[in-house]
C-alpha cells in the first residue's frame, strides 16, 4: 500500500502573515527568532578593544514597540556570522536608539568591529529581567563595575541620572586593569564635577597620567560610608569579581536581596529554550540576567 500525499500541509514562515496590519508587539511575537533590521547610526571608539555602537531599528512599528529596562539584553545578528547576546548600554529614556558597548573578543565581535555607520544588522529583543529600577528609587545606590561590566551598568547609571532626584546618594566604583581601558571617562568626570555621583575610578596598573585610585575594585570599600539599610547594590564584572565585591557589600551590611548582580552567559535563543545560559535550575536569559544575591545563592553553581 502506497502512502498517500498528505491532505493538508502546514507552513511556518518566518516572515509571518504580513497581509493584515500588525502592531510592533504582534510582529515581534509572531516569530521571536526573527531579527529586525537596524542601522548603525554611530560608532565611538572607547578603548583599543571596545566600541560603542548606536543602532536605530528601521521598521517604525518595531522601533515604537521596543522598550527595555536597564540590565536587559538584545540578540544582535550579523547575517552569515551569527548572533550574540549583548547587554543594552543606553538608558530606556533614550527612545528610538539602542546603544551596545562591544569588546572585540571573537569571530562575531571582530566582524561587528569591522562594520561602519549606515551598515545594517539584525536585532531581536529585548530579553531578560533587568534591575528593579522602580524599587531602587528613594534609596542610596552603590554600583560596582569591573571592566566591561560597565556596559550593562551604564544603562542603569544613565537611567538614574535621568531621574536623579528620585534617588539618594549614588556611589559608583569602576575598576579597570589600566587607564587606557577606562570607558566613558569624560562622562564620569562630568558627573563627578557636577557632584551627581560619588565616583571612584580604580585601576590595577596605573601609568604616569593616572590620578585616580590604584588597586582592586574592592579597595574603595575601605573608606566607604553608607547607610546600608537604605542602599541597593548593583554589581557587574568578570566572574571572579562577584564573590569579593559581594563580600564587601555584605560586610557593610547591605541586605542579601538588595544586592543585584548581572550574570554573563551565552544566551543563544534568549527565550529559555536553548539551554546554553542555564545555571542550576535558572535560565539567565529569562530569569536573569540580573539576579539578587539571595536568588543567586539559591542557584546551584552560580558563583
Amino acid at each position: 500500500m502506497m502512502l498517500r500525499e498528505p491532505a493538508r500541509v502546514v507552513e511556518v514562515n518566518p516572515l509571518g502573515n504580513m497581509t493584515t496590519p500588525l502592531t510592533g508587539e504582534e510582529l515581534m511575537a509572531n516569530n521571536p527568532y526573527r531579527p529586525w533590521p537596524a542601522r548603525i547610526t554611530s560608532i565611538t571608539d572607547l578603548t583599543p578593544t571596545e566600541k560603542l555602537f548606536e543602532f536605530r531599528l528601521i521598521d517604525e512599528r518595531i522601533r515604537e514597540a521596543f522598550r527595555h529596562e536597564p540590565g536587559q539584553f538584545v540578540e544582535l545578528s550579523l547575517f552569515g556570522v551569527g548572533e550574540a547576546p549583548i547587554s543594552i548600554s543606553s538608558s530606556p529614556s533614550k527612545r528610538g536608539f539602542i546603544e551596545l558597548c562591544v569588546r572585540r573578543a571573537g569571530r562575531f565581535t571582530e566582524a561587528l568591529h569591522a562594520m561602519q555607520c549606515g551598515d545594517i544588522v539584525g536585532i531581536r529583543g529585548p530579553f531578560g529581567r533587568g534591575f528593579p529600577f522602580e524599587r531602587m528609587k528613594h534609596h542610596d545606590i552603590l554600583l560596582v563595575a569591573g571592566g566591561l561590566g560597565i556596559a550593562p551598568l551604564r544603562s542603569l547609571i544613565n537611567n538614574i541620572h535621568d531621574e536623579r532626584s528620585e534617588f539618594g546618594k549614588v556611589t559608583i566604583i569602576y575598576g579597570s586593569r589600566s587607564p587606557s581601558e577606562v570607558m566613558f571617562r569624560d562622562q564620569f568626570e562630568m558627573w563627578r564635577h557636577r557632584k551627581d555621583f560619588d565616583l571612584y575610578l580604580t585601576v590595577d596598573h596605573p601609568d604616569d597620567t593616572w590620578d585616580g585610585e590604584v588597586g582592586l575594585v574592592t579597595k574603595p570599600f575601605e573608606h566607604l560610608e553608607l547607610d546600608a539599610r537604605h542602599t541597593y547594590g548593583a554589581v557587574c564584572g568578570p566572574p571572579v569579581m562577584y564573590r569579593f565585591v559581594i563580600d564587601e557589600m555584605r560586610k557593610k551590611g547591605i541586605e542579601y536581596d538588595h544586592i543585584y548582580c548581572s550574570f554573563e552567559r551565552h544566551m543563544k535563543c534568549g527565550m529559555g529554550k536553548c539551554g546554553h545560559c542555564q545555571i542550576g535550575h535558572q535560565y539567565v536569559c529569562i530569569d536573569g540576567p540580573v539576579f539578587n544575591y539571595w536568588e543567586a545563592k539559591n542557584i546551584q553553581g552560580s558563583m
Binding site: V9, E11, N13, Y33, R34, F79, V121, G122
Partner: peptide, 21 residues
C-alpha cells in the same frame, strides 16, 4: 532551517517550511 537571508543587504528572505500532517 529557521530562516534564509540575503547576506549582501542583510535582510531575511521568504522561506516557508512545509510540515506534513
Amino acid at each position: 532551517t529557521l530562516m534564509t537571508f540575503n547576506a549582501v543587504d542583510n535582510c531575511i528572505t521568504e522561506h516557508a517550511e512545509c510540515i506534513p500532517p
